[in-house]
Design a binder for these strands. Sequence first.
RNA 1: GCGCCCGUAGCUCAAUGGAUAGAGCACGUGACUUCGGAUCACGCGGUUGAGGGUUCGAAUCCUUCCGGGCGUACCA
Length: 542
Amino acid sequence: MRNYLYSLFNRAAQKLDYLKDVNIIFTVPQQENHGDFSTNIAMLLSRKLKRNPREIASEILAVLEIDNRIIEKTEIAGAGFINFFFTKSYVSNLTKVIIESGESFGRSDKYKGKRAQVEFVSANPTGPLTVGHGRNAVTGDTIANLLTAIGYKVDREYYFNNAGRQMRVLGDSVRLRYLELLGEKIEFPEDYYQGEYIKEIAKKLLDEYGDNLKDESADEKFKERAEQEIFIEIKGTLNRLNIIFDNYFNEHSLYEEGRIKELLELFSKRNLSYEKDGAVWLKFSELGNEQDKVIVKSTGEPTYRLPDIAYHITKYERGYDLIVDLFGSDHNATYPDVMAALKALGYDTGKIKVLIHQFVTITQGDEIVKMSTRKANYITLDELIDEVGSDVVRYFFNMRSITSHLNFDIDLAKKQSDENPVFYLQYAHARIASILRMAQEQGLDISTENLHLLETDEEQRLLKKLYQYPEEVMLSAENYEPHRICVYLEELAALFHKFYTVCRVIGSSKDLAEARIALIVATKTVIKNGLSLLGVSALDRM
RNA sequence: GCGCCCGUAGCUCAAUGGAUAGAGCACGUGACUUCGGAUCACGCGGUUGAGGGUUCGAAUCCUUCCGGGCGUACCA
């Protein structure tokens, strides 16, 4: 529909000079009586041409070579909007396109040949994933799905660090629990990892090694085993959400391959760093950021910034056209440094898209559940999946815009009722499946021969909505906004349910019934395609 | 203090700078002897935190306040 309008305006531009080189936007008006599409172009041109917008609009309308089999009516409205009303037969014929495209309806090859990387989760293996990580995981995976849908070849990557202070504390936490199990009196420091899982790992080591690890240091068996066990659990959790990474990138490899050292030398050679108080500083203040920051501590150990920068350089080297980083808002201070450093080294930071999602607040009833991995008074992602299921988890994390704080009410998510939008969508899908089963028993088949019979308001509204789906996918993907898909699907499902209450499939004349079957098959296709982008299952029965 | 994000109906949230700011839930009233009532229809509900500005037009952009979240390390 939109394409037809563009072609109309392209031809018109040959007659009206002021239509050349202008970016014309067609929107779907909020109100139905404003048409199927609307453009504000006359109002935008009004200033440039210093003329009345309605006058411009009528001039434009006069030169449009409109096919009245496609567009039934045009009008100039309000301050100078041009509204277009499509014919019912044109709209109902769109069903065919959806049926023929099937699973690929909504996909695009706009970015075919481009490669993207999405880095997300990236939690260090110090404990089970929390609900906070859940939002990151689901958002990242869905964005990867969306980018795939518009043509990118996408790699999902998980960056982690198994060296450093955090991990030493982890190893020592296990060691102390182990000694405790051996009956020693130990004092467990408050800032150590308090979780039950530490005790479980200690118990495993005890079962396997008896007291042979008594004098072992925290950094070896204890840490290694902790990392191994925790990673197995993390991957298991992600797997339950159908999240599979293409690559796990270990920060440590940057040291092993000498990348850290190289980078340090490069900074020095480019005169971007200096030494002070026994530490190495990077001149961020000269790169436009607030202040210089330490990249190598006086102990000789790099801070996280240095490997972060080195890591991003590998992303460039691996040839990605688009690099997406997804962080929680607690990391919002770290990326400007990385970006500034990359820019100073001559990398095109325009390729990097940093996404920051806001925090998840977990409420249970009226109570806010505070989160802290170390104190272990959190609800794990696994527990959440146990409670509400993976479909609900994925849907809830996707349904809010990432800039918005997300309130996850566990009690509400648990309710398998109409308070829960996931079921509304799945119900629509199952309902269609049910009609199709029954239609088959009655010997009715799908047919696109008599689509023009789909002419009630309910059918036309549903069709127009269906046909908007590809644009919605494109907008969601290009703007990194998974929640748009949820909003769209809820509107679509509502239109289907309205159709259902007004229009009967079985019981109508054969021609009409078979045309309506085409319509509901198209609806089922779009719901399924949309849910699949979100990673939520579409059920034929529930 | 400074930086990023947020503030929209009782609650949870939508809304490319567009036309009368929309959904869901909650609340109230209705709707099946025929395709799944996990549904649908109608109603109630708003000074878009407050003030100023930009323009044909602002929830959206700028600015000053107020309130909340997250940061602001030689932690990651």
